[in-house]
């Protein structure tokens, strides 16, 4: 009872497991790329790589934000709702065919801010009201879809601002803008994770909340902060999707949450919190995107992929939870 878990871990050779956890996803990614390249050379053509990168952009943005929430052992199920609201705020505040607003970049910022507000609401509901994050974010995600539906009012507002459309549709030096923006988000995420208290305390709280509290860390505010980062990332994703498709709509984020959670988990961030990081999630996103793209190229039903992502989530959580099992433990 008083022994540290390390006793058991030693027996299972932690070095090997750590190696698998660290390098596994990267190796898997490389193997996948090689396999698909051999199966269909089109896979590594410049055209397809360009497609891959722009497909990776939105999941990467969302997964970066989500990583902070999952590092705390929480989850964000509001992503699709937040993306939807953000896309509509974006489409209705930049030049559009519905109203006379034309706020340009400021409109995009407003849309991102809408995401941050959702993140704040998620965090407050979790920390101040004590609602488990899956429940709070499920509810607030519905609120997001609802607000989007109200703003949508039966017809998609079209984005007429050409500058704003270039965000999602243009490219710079041959690389899609949307991917460049995503990489910028990743770099900022990495910086926050590595160099700020918000990022470092995320690891501490996710690793051992009781120790954090005992050390005088104000746990609540850092948790709220992580949810705000998650919401902000979803807000950015909403803008990128709105710009890419040129419209805002309530279903614009369909599937993004699932892809993002799978990517974060595949990258090696533990759903129990404390371990992982945004760079890992980047690898996870690439695996998902390569898999999706490659499977289509070799002719697999795209819906089967949703099923596979579901299986991956279950398998990952079982694999990480398996060695922590004990005879008498509370699970919910």
């Amino acid at each position: 009872m008083t022994h540290p878990p390390t006793v058991d871990e030693r027996r299972l050779s932690p070095r090997v497991r750590r190696l698998i956890a660290d390098a596994g996803p990267l190796v898997a990614l490389i193997v996948l790329i090689v396999v698909f390249a051999v199966a269909n050379p089109v896979f590594v053509s410049p055209g397809n790589i360009g497609i891959l990168l722009s497909q990776a952009a939105v999941p990467l943005v969302i997964a970066t934000g989500l990583t902070f929430v999952i590092l705390l052992g929480g989850i964000d199920l509001s992503i699709e709702g937040v993306v939807a609201t953000s896309s509509l705020v974006f489409a209705l505040t930049v030049a559009n065919d519905r109203n006379d607003l034309a706020l340009g970049l400021f409109g995009a910022l407003l849309a991102v801010l809408a995401g941050s507000v959702f993140g704040l609401a998620n965090g407050l509901a979790n920390v101040k009201l004590g609602i488990p994050s899956f429940m709070a974010t499920l509810g607030l995600g519905a609120v997001g879809i609802g607000i989007a539906t109200v703003l949508f009012a039966g017809r998609s507002p079209r984005v007429l601002d050409s500058g704003m459309r270039m965000l999602g549709q243009g490219s710079t030096l041959g690389i899609a803008n949307i991917f460049l923006i995503a990489v910028l988000v990743l770099v900022i995420g990495w910086f926050v994770q590595r160099f700020t208290r918000l990022g470092r305390y995320g690891y501490v709280i996710g690793g051992d909340e009781a120790v954090a509290r005992l050390s005088g860390v104000r746990v609540g505010r850092y948790k709220i902060g992580a949810f705000v980062l998650g919401g902000t990332a979803s807000g950015i994703a909403g803008v990128l999707l709105g710009s890419q498709l040129g419209v805002g709509m309530p279903t614009i984020g369909s599937g993004t949450m699932f892809t993002a959670i799978t990517a974060v988990v595949l990258g090696g961030t533990l759903l129990t919190g404390g371990r992982g990081g945004v760079l890992r999630s980047f690898v996870g996103v690439l695996i998902i995107v390569v898999l999706a793209n490659g499977l289509i190229l070799i002719g697999v039903n795209p819906y089967a992929q949703v099923a596979v992502q579901g299986l991956v989530i279950i398998a990952a959580v079982v694999a990480t939870g398996w060695r922590l099992r004990t005879r008498v433990r509370i699970i919910k």
Binding site: T2, P4, R200, Y203, V204, G206, G207, D208, V211, A212, L214, G274, R275
Partner: peptide, 10 residues
Amino acid sequence: HQEQSLVTSV
């Protein structure tokens, strides 16, 4: 502390 109070992931 008797039961160690370190956060092992940092």
